[in-house]
Amino acid sequence: MATSIKKLPDTEQVLSGNGSCGGCPATMALRIVGKALGPNAIMLLTPSCAVASMGMTPRLGYNWPCMNICFATAGSSASGIAAALEIMKEKGRLQGELPTVFTWVGDGGTYDIGFQALSAAAERNDNFIHFCYNNEAYSNTGVQRSGATPRGSYTTTTPAGKRQPKKNMALLMLEHNIPYVATATVAYPGDLYDKVVKAKNIPGMKYIEILAPCYLGWQFDMSETVQMSRMAVRCGAWLLWEAENGKITFNNPTSLIISGKKDPDPVDEYLMKQGRFSRFLKGPDAAQRIAEIQNDINYEIVFMRERAKIAV
């Protein structure tokens, strides 16, 4: 059972009046992450919307020591800082509890550009948390195609809709044999909070991916951010799961879909609410194209159900 909203702590690590868009799912998620991590943490940001949201010098929108690093270096920079902190502790220059090192990276810095450094850090099992807030496109630079963009989605580099399905990054990270992998989304804050608290107390590399429906990139009304994230989970387009030491467990409501107790909602309504699919789904063969996207979703559900049965 996920932590109830009334039991979440009062700590605010995201300060009001930052530079993010109204209804931004990334700051929404970062607030919950901040409640779980507390003030004793070091934040690393690769170029993404989160850097633009920090605001203007000499003010900073996040209540942590923040460092802006190169796009491809999320894994390597975090490894370096985690190692430096351990040595400082050893030499007695740092007293008390070690700060949590975490990276706050978009899907571009995780799926495409940052993958090499991240994969190497996971293989070394360095002690930090990698957060990927996944808005399924390069939204900061004006919505370009990324490895996380699903089939049929409009971006400025795929004007007729992307032809390929997205890749399952969380599963790729699980295959690196790291101690903790989880997926979450903004509509289930208690679930996200629990996962971050769990990750904080595990030594080694942790990977948490958060689905963040960006209203500019996905082209829906900005007040529907949370609703869209909830719909993605209910129709199975986003699966909520966590894996501790390689053992996958599903969280509600995905566990109901996986175990077959509840059928996933049909994907039509979820697709039609988003402007990014409108061009792909226009024309006489719209039904066939919806079936194609539905097939991608069904494939993921079946694959993850069978993958979860493998437990060492």
Binding site: L15, S16, G17, N18, G19, S20, G22, S53, M54, G55, M56, T57, P58, R59, L60, G61, Y62, N63, W64, C66
Partner: peptide, 21 residues
């Protein structure tokens, strides 16, 4: 402190964002 090229955590880093509403 004021002349260091470092930002400090403060409310309103994007200005008075209420005017965007």
């Amino acid at each position: 402190k004021a002349y260091r090229p470092i930002s400090w955590p403060m409310k309103g880093s994007g200005g008075d964002t209420g005017s965007w509403r």
